[in-house]
Nucleic acid binder design. Structure first.
Ligand SMILES: [Mn+2]
Ligand SMILES: [Mn+2]
Ligand SMILES: [Mn+2]
Ligand SMILES: [Mn+2]
Lengths: 219, 219
DNA sequence: ATTTACTTTTTGACTACTCAAAGTTGTCAT
DNA sequence: ATGACAACTTTGAGTAGTCAAAAAGTAAAT
């Protein structure tokens, strides 16, 4: 069985890989995992020796099929656990990430299947991130549209929150925006970078960089 | 934060300590934890250095207040998780122990409190083992009566299953006996060691050693 | 073609946990 | 007392994961 360290490393590579071709730099992994660059190099060589990824020295790292499958299973656990914590245990969706970070390594396939059934086989987690299927292990296409790039005045639905840092989740919680919310961009000022949105419960004002972190889809 | 290894060691000491006075032998711990005796000696010295237990060389080991509190918290998590797995996820009560063995180290106090509330603050787990309270951290008094020692012909209630090995759980599952079951001992043959019990759904026959592993209380 | 700055890798060291095998010690039967 | 034996501890070694600091490579700026 892979250790939780190994699972965390592979997951970090997965969520930072745009496509199957691209490599992820060791520096980015060091940053993401909160360890020194030397540690990444050491670990990456060990993971490569185990056939979980390819190390292209001074270039970066790419998952093998096996490594990707393992990482995807971890992501699936993480997102189902988050969904459970929010929907069943009624926890705040801005505090579940940390809990899931530990639980994703302790949940067996058997328990996972039960949770998934209890939740009605959800397609996305509380942040709007897609849950890779049990059999169809594929990751997010993503509409690519955000509040910063969408057509103004059209009816939109918030799909997912791209930035899941604590301060940003805190911020949008106050605006009332969350996955599933209906919104329409009222006005977007190129110069000042202000985006004003109308939503069911009132109005929200955010800056352009913030608007870019909220993925939407036309309805 | 203590590692899960430390938590498992302390828990193993706790559940093998009759009272606060008695010591647990390192050999018993090696057996229980599935490691060599030398490993226990090494770890025990390290735990003693951390103030979690006292090591009396060649005698045994005793938890400190701090070590006992930590171990009790782990037992509480273990038993609440088991209860959750059975009551909410409808898992088989003979397969939840292994799952809880891992989850007990990954559940935060916050999640624990939510689970506890969801379950209605249960007093005992699916095997009948008492759940130490959040504030009143105390462990099982236990009636001490078993199907092997109780008064025959009286109305009894199964309190807990003392032997939780897979084969025994498998066995009593077939008999229909489980915590909460009503039973009456019909006949107990000293010579052959056969104990015949009457229960709601029929009759169960077990050997004396098996009967000793089922704790009951008069109703 | 050098220099500079930045990233990545290497090296040496340390903690936590574990085992196999050798060494001790306490107890109990002679 | 004297062994003999079982239980326990010590020793030496190995894996996994980590860091600090030194070394090496890359690429852009001069
Ligand atoms: Mn994790
Ligand atoms: Mn999420
Ligand atoms: Mn455990
Ligand atoms: Mn139990």
């Amino acid at each position: 069985m892979p250790t939780s360290t190994v699972e965390n490393y592979l997951k970090a590579v997965l969520v930072r890989s745009a496509d199957t071709e691209s490599v992820v730099s060791t520096g980015a992994l060091a940053e993401a995992l909160g360890v020194t660059p030397g540690t990444i190099t050491t670990m990456v060589k060990s993971l490569a020796a185990q056939g979980l990824l390819e190390h292209h020295p001074r270039e970066g790292v790419r998952l093998t099929r096996e490594g990707r499958a393992l990482a995807m299973a971890v992501v699936r656990k993480h997102r189902i656990v988050e969904t459970f914590l929010v929907q069943v245990l009624k926890m705040d969706w801005k505090e579940v990430h940390g809990e899931a970070e530990a639980l994703e390594h302790a949940i067996s396939e058997r328990v996972l299947a039960r949770l998934d059934a209890l939740l009605g086989h959800p397609a996305s987690d509380p942040h709007g991130d897609p849950i890779p299927g049990a059999k169809s292990p594929q990751l997010d296409p993503g509409s690519g549209q955000t509040l910063a790039t969408c057509e103004p005045q059209t009816q939109l639905r918030v799909e997912r929150i791209l930035d899941q840092s604590a301060p940003f989740l805190e911020f949008i919680q106050r605006t009332g925006l969350k996955p599933g919310s209906r919104v329409r961009v009222r006005e977007r000022d190129r110069a000042s970078g202000v985006v004003r949105c109308e939503l069911r419960t009132g109005e929200a004002t955010l800056g352009l960089p913030e608007a870019a972190k909220i993925e939407v889809r036309a309805t």
